[in-house]
Amino acid sequence: MDKLRLRFSKTGRAVYISHLDLMRTMTRAFLRAGCRLKYSEGFNPHPNISIALPLSVGCESLCEIMDFRLIEEKELDDILKSLSVQLPEGIEALEVYGAERKVKEIKWLKISGIFEYDERDAAEMTEKLNAFYSRESIVISKKSKRGVGETDIRPAIKEIGFAQEGNDVRLDAVISAQEPTLNPELIADALRQLTPETAPDFAKFRRLEIYDENMEVFR
């Protein structure tokens, strides 16, 4: 059967399932759903599945996609229905369809975030955050496999805005999904490094939608 694509969300308690654990969790859910995944050939066969843009532990998402192949023909709707009831709490299957576009065409991610301040005023912080992110260049130090390096995160942010939401500050942004990949955590990290007085006590993020280069929704 052709390559298929599952679109799913990962929220609530499920956000703590790591990428590797999610692959195993998905494999098992497919088996329970009676959808037999195609396995790799070779000495140590494993199911051929791939989840695009690995999500950080703790981050919610409404727009995850996973590509897979089955060894037998099945109605797309049946796959979705049988899979839906087999997923752990917090993972919801949204759609199953033929994978036509290549995952590497994904370019932008729309995200939101909640910045929590325990002892500071949300309105004041909102103003300061907007001011900070209006800079043209935001160079921070970032740990990578090669050690600590300097990187400018601003070019990887297409749109960004902060608004007060109760006692918190809400972030809305469109950031680069790949090449380069911007981990949303860095938006809060930059504050910790450059203006600690505006850094939140806690920040959490959520992926809302994926787009291609032309800001068309990717499917």
Binding site: R13, Y16, E89
Partner: peptide, 24 residues
């Protein structure tokens, strides 16, 4: 989820073992 827990979990190793929510 408990607010305090939400702040702790990202800091610890293998947080999925502290959340429940598993299938079955």
């Amino acid at each position: 989820m408990d607010k305090r827990l939400e702040r702790i979990l990202p800091k610890v190793q293998k947080p999925a073992r502290y959340t429940g929510g598993e299938y079955n």
